[in-house]
């Protein structure tokens, strides 16, 4: 089923979203960094912190919401549900393949982000050397941390035909996630709200964000475990709901 999903991604508008979002993010981060050089120390870490600040709180999760709505719109349009549900593929595989395909696009988006950070940092901001490996590790971890958001947005977009409604609900999730993190809630709650988990992952080792954990095996392991558990729970719920769905 995952192979079928990969074919559907060809010439899909999802790739455009995955390209444009990092461009906007790095542009905003670079402008922020350049405009506040007097207040920020020079180097890759302060630049990275400016890039991931809004990306971690809002852009990545909202990007996922848009990607999920676009991915399920393919099925809502043109009676493709009838086709999907009259194949031998089980509901869990249908939902799982969609989550995996979306994770692939998010991974591509993270790769674009890393490349853009390196290019803009060197060529535009004149930073020396290359970005530290920790930034690549955090960007990769963010893909794992984003899977619960992918699963939740996938569930919403699967259940609601509207493109905008799941995105709006995703925005509410971001507000809740930011509230948990910035309100100092932290702890368990920051690992239970999917959007907060994305922020926690992207802010690892980031000195510009208060209360962010350091990039150590314990913090990484907790995020991976939370992401796995949340994704599995939402995936299972999606499969049950899809199995009960009536094609009216």
């Amino acid at each position: 089923m995952i192979l079928a999903e990969l074919v559907k991604l060809r010439r899909s508008a999802l790739w455009l979203v995955a390209l444009v979002l990092p461009v906007l993010t790095v542009t905003a981060g670079a402008l922020n960094y350049a405009g506040n050089r007097s207040m920020l120390s020079s180097g890759w870490a302060p630049f990275w912190s400016q890039v991931v600040l809004f990306y971690g709180l809002l852009f990545l999760s909202m990007g996922v919401a848009v990607l999920a709505s676009a991915a399920w719109r393919m099925e809502h349009r043109g009676h493709n549900w009838n086709l999907l549900m009259s194949t031998p593929i089980r509901p869990a595989a249908i939902v799982g393949a969609k989550i995996a395909a979306l994770a692939l696009v998010v991974a591509f988006m993270q790769l674009v982000l890393l490349v853009l950070v390196a290019v803009v940092g060197r060529l535009v901001l004149g930073l020396e050397g290359m970005p530290p490996w920790e930034q690549a590790a955090v960007a990769g971890l963010a893909v794992v941390a984003a899977t619960p958001v992918i699963a939740v947005q996938s569930l919403l977009s699967m259940s609601i035909r509207s493109f905008a409604a799941p995105v709006a609900l995703g925005l509410l999730g971001c507000v809740a996630g930011a509230g948990v993190l910035l309100g100092g809630g932290g702890g368990v709650l920051s690992h239970l709200v999917p959007q907060a988990l994305v922020s926690s992952a992207l802010f690892l080792g980031n000195t510009a964000v208060a209360d962010s954990a350091s990039l150590d095996p314990g913090a990484v392991g907790t995020i991976v475990a939370a992401a796995g558990a949340l994704t599995a729970a939402v995936w299972a719920l999606s499969a049950v709901l899809l199995a009960r769905r009536e094609m009216r």
Partner: peptide
């Protein structure tokens, strides 16, 4: 389902493909 081919209401299809 492997033994039943169907076309319900309107033909399915992914327009961008």
């Amino acid at each position: 389902s492997p033994h039943i081919g169907s076309l319900i209401e309107a033909p399915p299809g992914y327009g961008h493909l």
